[in-house]
């Protein structure tokens, strides 16, 4: 059993799990758990601990879009330059380089559609390396980062022998 791998699997599912619970699950000391987590952080493997929030349920409406971006043909390094540039914009949640007709896929979040539209027209369109975009406005969310955003009834019997 690769303990670091197990730690990552557990944290991926629950970043707030206590060190002592993790120690119990992995049969190692709490000190070792902390040491390993610190090392994983230090090495940049654990980038950040975040929370998966259902904003709609909280009453906050946000506009989200997937934007596909076509870039002037260039070498890998070139993609990296523009991908990093776009990543620096706080409105952008995710940036991927992908195969297909479009080269980059972005997940963008804004207060409303206007903000998304502003991002496309003001941020992306003027870039001379970008030759085209295709925007999908997200209508509903069901699952994000592996987390279901809807409740399901437990179908198992509460007691069975």
């Amino acid at each position: 059993m690769d303990i670091d791998r197990e730690i990552l699997d557990i944290l991926k599912d629950d970043a707030r799990i206590s060190v002592s619970e993790m120690a119990d699950m992995l049969n190692i000391s709490t000190d070792e758990v902390e040491k390993r987590i610190n090392s994983l952080k230090g090495r940049g493997i654990i980038r950040k601990f975040k929370t998966c929030i259902d904003w709609r349920r909280f009453g906050v409406k946000k506009a989200k879009a997937i934007i596909r971006v076509k870039v002037v043909p260039q070498e890998r390094a070139g993609f990296s330059k523009i991908a990093k540039e776009i990543s620096r914009d706080p409105r952008v949640e995710d940036v991927f380089v992908a195969t297909g007709e479009y080269d980059l896929i972005l997940f963008v979040e804004g207060e409303d559609i206007d903000e998304i539209s502003q991002f496309v027209t003001e941020k992306l369109a003027p870039k001379k390396d970008i030759v085209g975009t295709y925007t999908h406005i997200i209508l509903a969310e069901y699952k994000r980062d592996g987390v279901m955003l809807f409740d399901e009834k437990e179908r198992r019997l509460k007691l069975s022998l």
Binding site: R156, L157, K158, L159, S160, L161
Partner: peptide, 17 residues
């Protein structure tokens, strides 16, 4: 068994599947 089925807000460690 019936008592469990009627109980609300419980956590069940009684499942056998």
């Amino acid at each position: 068994f019936e008592l469990v089925q009627k109980s609300k807000d419980i956590i069940s460690l009684g499942v056998g599947e």
